[in-house]
């Protein structure tokens, strides 16, 4: 098959992986805008979520949640429940990390904080490897039939539709939260100007708490969705995606969660479509190229503003 005729199919893959990158990117962007540092532990937070869901899956089945497949999807209600609880668990873990570590470093230089996140990233990944081992784990071994759409020349699995739908739903919820709730507005205000937020009477520590909860929840969901798409999880799954996530966040404009969504889709689609022309092994290079180009042409990103 020639390169061009593969593009519609690659677009589908790109939208799927872009949706996951977007979910991961939102957390990185929010952390940067509210707390002022780049969180290199975000990828491993995704992996933590993926493993928590793995651990919860048998528990949910024991609690009597039906594990039979939901319609054409490869998973049942037990998986959905595990996904949601993994988000809660990951949030709690990240809040604990903030209390133990980041809160103490709140007023230090952002480089100190960034290096601390690298330490957290290593610790988390090795913890996962220590508990679950380096070998891949599977949520389900069900083999799923792709749906063929011959008119468009694409095939798509029901699970992939679920991934995109979940990302769209979560992005929409985030939008409504930021736009219409008092805490959402306070988050935008704190992101605009933390010192002014404080003298206005906004409880910035509570804003920070919400930032971690939203970022960690979306990271956990992203991590589980990676497992669903790839069919397996390893302790490395988040770390491997971190470059693409940062490329997406910077492309969209770091600090802007909407930019992270746009950037995630652009990077995801570019990476997949590039495989029509160059070897799959160069996918990370594509993310890198986008990152460098953006930093050269428009360092503030597509939707970024001057800071």
């Amino acid at each position: 098959m020639d390169a061009l005729s593969r593009i519609p199919q690659l677009l589908v893959y790109g939208i799927v992986s872009g949706s996951i990158l977007s979910l991961g990117g939102i957390g990185v962007s929010l952390t940067y805008s509210i707390l002022g540092f780049s969180n290199f532990a975000h990828g491993d937070t995704m992996a933590l979520g993926a493993y928590l869901a793995l651990a919860l899956l048998p528990v949910m089945a024991q609690l009597g949640l039906p594990s039979g497949s939901l319609g054409p999807l490869s998973f049942g209600w037990d998986f959905v429940a595990s996904l949601l609880l993994a988000a809660v668990g990951t949030s709690l873990a990240v809040i604990l990390l903030d209390r133990l570590l980041f809160a103490r470093l709140r007023d230090t230089h952002r480089i100190t904080l960034m290096i601390a996140t690298v330490g957290v990233a290593l610790a988390l990944r090795n913890l996962l490897q220590f508990v679950w081992g380096p070998q891949p784990h599977y949520y389900t071994t069900t083999i799923q039939r792709a749906i063929l759409i011959p008119q468009l020349g694409i095939r798509i699995k029901p699970d992939q539709i679920f991934i995109v739908a979940a990302a769209v739903l979560l992005a929409l919820l985030l939008h409504l939260f930021l736009r219409y709730t008092k805490m959402g507005k306070a988050m935008r205000a704190t992101s605009d100007n933390t010192a002014l937020a404080r003298v206005t009477g906004i409880n910035t520590e509570r804003v920070i708490l919400w930032t971690w909860v939203i970022g960690a929840s979306l990271a956990a969901v992203a991590g589980v969705l990676v497992g669903l798409e790839n069919k397996f999880i390893t302790p490395e799954l988040g770390w491997q995606m971190l470059l693409s996530i940062f490329a997406a966040v910077i492309l969209g404009g770091i600090g802007n969660p909407y930019g992270a969504i746009v950037g995630g889709l652009v990077v995801g689609i570019s990476e997949e479509v590039s495989t029509a022309f160059i070897s799959t092994g160069y996918k990370p290079a594509v993310a890198f190229a986008i990152l460098i180009l953006m930093l050269l042409i428009r360092p503030t990103g597509l939707l970024g503003r001057r800071r």
Binding site: K185, A186, R188, A189, D192, I202
Partner: peptide, 25 residues
Amino acid sequence: AYVPQVENVFPSLTIQENLEMGAFI
């Protein structure tokens, strides 16, 4: 209440949202 000299509004928020933030507590 305190009005700083510069950067004393939240630029990405609307006027109404800026005022609402004043009553956050």
